[in-house]
């Protein structure tokens, strides 16, 4: 495992996502209202790039005809067949224990610390006064 700087926090505003490739692996990083999460950018069903999917809430119902929307912004739907995944955990809604996407640990680190290493900042120039999203892969 190594740590990789993937974006400045200011470049990944709340509600947005970005696709990065680290060690050859496609990964999508999400900013969920200031919390960051990362998932393999490949749907376990037929391999679609999740990054292109819709971010939504979770729709549930207590009885036919009633709709509750919760967890707004925390669900990503695959751009192909629409399977829903929890951005926080990578678990699918339909079969959370068996169908899930591998998550990667993410942290936010100040540039001042990053410049001391041992971080890999391939394409992101690190400045001391900024905060950065760091992925452990």
């Amino acid at each position: 495992m190594s740590k990789h700087v993937v974006a400045a926090v200011s470049d990944l505003p709340a509600g947005s996502r970005r696709q990065v490739t680290i060690k050859g692996r496609p990964i999508v990083v999400f900013n969920l209202s200031g919390e960051f999460f990362a998932l393999v950018n490949r749907c376990p069903h037929q391999g679609a790039g999740l990054c292109e999917g819709e971010i939504t809430g979770l729709v549930t119902s207590d009885r036919p005809g009633e709709f509750h929307v919760s967890r707004e912004g925390e669900i990503i739907r695959c751009p192909w067949h629409g399977w829903e995944f929890d951005i926080r955990t990578g678990q699918s809604w339909c079969d959370p224990s068996r169908i899930r996407i591998r998550p990667y640990p993410v942290e936010v680190a100040p540039g001042a610390r990053l410049v001391q290493g041992p971080y890999v900042a391939e394409t992101v120039p690190v400045r001391i006064e900024e905060d950065y999203v760091v992925l452990e892969v």
Binding site: R42, C43, P44, G47, G90, I99
Partner: peptide, 8 residues
Amino acid sequence: MSATTLPR
């Protein structure tokens, strides 16, 4: 099934 074992 998980992303890392998606069978081809």
